[in-house]
């Protein structure tokens, strides 16, 4: 086999990609995992995991380190901090070109790029990150003791975090675009009955203002289009997750309307030899257990695909 040719290239080193890497390399398949960040994916964002069977409690950092070590021990190669410039999915010999000039080919590809928290995408959001804008209540809540803040979002996380932030903040304004919450009834009741929470429905933030730190936001009422300025010290953003599929959009891989990857029940995409696993899939439940299950299924089916393809070649 050529040095830069692999049986399988896995894109994404979260639990789905690492599991696929463990299965493939243990079966002596030459396997490369490429990750744009660091190995572990969303696992490393998880402080404590208590629902991974067989392990009572573990930090995401530790679990991802163990998965990475397991994959490496079986001979899997992992390159992190890479950026993909181009991919050819359709040829029999698939190819991946990185921005640093490296190029790899493979018999099969597994897409395991997971998901990420949505950001608002409003100007100033990056400037004030850590200076008033936060995406983690447990991390940064205590910086807002006796301060006025806003929480953006209308799902379970937004409502639960708004309530938990009232431990610190003197006032929490909950800003949501729709006319209803997409959350469990008990979460809605708890937020509505909290005296420190004021709710602004059908509203959205249009601008972040301040010099060295966040000082106010502009809020648009989506019904009247009236703009108002809300003075505050912090904004916590909890507006859901999106699949990391930007790099396949507009290519031959079928995505659904939310840009999640569509597969058959073998986790093969519409392109033969290209499989997908984990949170980037079009599916309902997104957990570590479901990601490792997907990683296993995609790896076993990729092996089967390689075996069948080489049998055809021999015949």
């Amino acid at each position: 086999m050529k040095p830069n040719h692999y049986n399988t290239i896995i894109i994404g080193a979260g639990p789905a990609g690492l599991t696929a890497g463990i299965y493939l390399s243990r079966a002596k398949m030459k396997t490369l995992i490429l990750d744009s960040g660091i190995a572990g994916g969303q696992l490393i964002l998880t402080h404590e995991i208590a629902n991974y069977p067989g392990i009572e409690k573990i930090s995401g950092y530790e679990l991802s380190n163990t998965m990475r070590k397991q994959a490496l021990a079986f001979g899997c190669e992992i390159q992190s901090g890479i950026s993909i410039k181009d991919i050819n999915f359709e040829a029999v010999e698939k190819s991946v070109q990185l921005s640093n000039g490296k190029q790899f080919t493979a018999d099969t590809i597994i897409l395991a790029t997971g998901g990420r928290s949505r950001t608002l995408g409003i100007s100033g959001e990056d400037k004030f990150k850590g200076r008033g804008i936060s995406y983690c209540a447990t991390c940064d809540g205590d910086f807002f003791q006796d301060k006025e803040i806003a929480v953006v979002g209308g799902g379970n996380t937004a409502l639960e975090e708004a309530v938990s932030l009232t431990k610190y903040a003197s006032k929490v304004t909950l800003i949501h675009m729709l006319d209803h919450f997409q959350a469990f009834a008990h979460a809605i009741d708890e937020a509505k009955s909290n005296p420190k929470i004021e709710i602004k429905m059908q509203s959205r933030i249009t601008a972040f203002n301040g010099e060295q730190k966040l000082e106010s936001v502009n809020v648009e009422n989506l019904l009247t289009h009236e703009l108002s300025e809300l003075k505050l010290d912090g904004v916590f953003v909890f507006i859901g997750y999106e699949a990391n599929t930007d790099f396949v959009q507009g290519r031959c891989i079928e995505l659904n309307e939310r840009n999640e990857i569509v597969t058959d029940d073998q986790l093969q995409t519409n392109v033969p030899g290209v499989f997908a696993a984990g949170d980037a899939l079009a599916k309902r439940f997104r957990q570590i257990t479901t990601a490792v299950s997907d990683g296993t299924i995609a790896a076993l089916n990729a092996m089967e695909f390689i075996r069948q393809a080489s049998a055809i070649k021999v015949a």
């Binding site: 964002l45 950092y61 983690c136 991390c139």
Partner: peptide, 12 residues
Amino acid sequence: RMGPMCIPVYGV
């Protein structure tokens, strides 16, 4: 701390 905003920075 050992939280979700910090751990990725240690990893990098």
